[in-house]
Amino acid sequence: MFAALEFPPIDNLVKWPAYFGEGQFYEFNKIALISLLAVIIPTILFLMAKRDLVPSGVQNLVEGTVEFVEKQVILSAIGPQGLKYTPLLLSIFLFVFFGNIFEVIPTFHMPANARMANPVVLAVVAWVTFIGVGIKSQGFGGFMKSSLFPPGVPKALMPLVSLIEFISTFLLRPFGLAVRLFANMLAGHILLVTFGVLCITLWQVGPLAAILPFSFAMLVGLTGFEVMVSLIQAFVFSLLTAVYISLSMSAHH
């Protein structure tokens, strides 16, 4: 019966038409608009926050966010010496979260991170940061030695282990960061679109049909779930960046 629902091609789900500058490198579409909003909204919130001794309203929200990043991300992954990375990790957290949350905001209905561009940018930032921190705190040789030649490995196995370590540290880490965020948000987006298309098609058949098969209840439930996923993905992205920074700060294994 539901074969009647024609699922739209994937490009209809994730590719958005240009608002201006089509074909140019500055082509401005919905993804770019969300990226800009992910800058503008935190800026407005932070500027709205008052400087009271007893926080309330927006100030509470802003300080709660800063404290969450400091306590849950930095102190638990790096320790007190990682507090100097608060601006970077807070920016990553905010950018990922506001890029995600537009998935459930009406008229947008699209997470910016369901396109590969923003995750790639953030992963490159994390990659450059943890390599930079490693070189700065251990020196280039020390960093390479500690990340490529783990101690306690038999000499004969060393080339293989080094190759695996190189791939996992310098290639899989940024790749994993980007793909984790991208695939999570794309999967959530496809889920929401699936149930959205289902609901709309059934609504066109008749209002009763939209409510009867619980597709609308699923849509509402999944929307709440995606809000949670947006938050968790922002948390996980900044937490993983912090973990990589902390692994670079001291020789591990």
Partner: peptide, 15 residues
């Protein structure tokens, strides 16, 4: 959450 993130990556690559 860290462990979930690492484990989940495999499923996401499958996706």
């Amino acid at each position: 959450f860290l462990g979930i993130a690492f484990t989940e990556a495999l499923a996401l690559i499958g996706f």
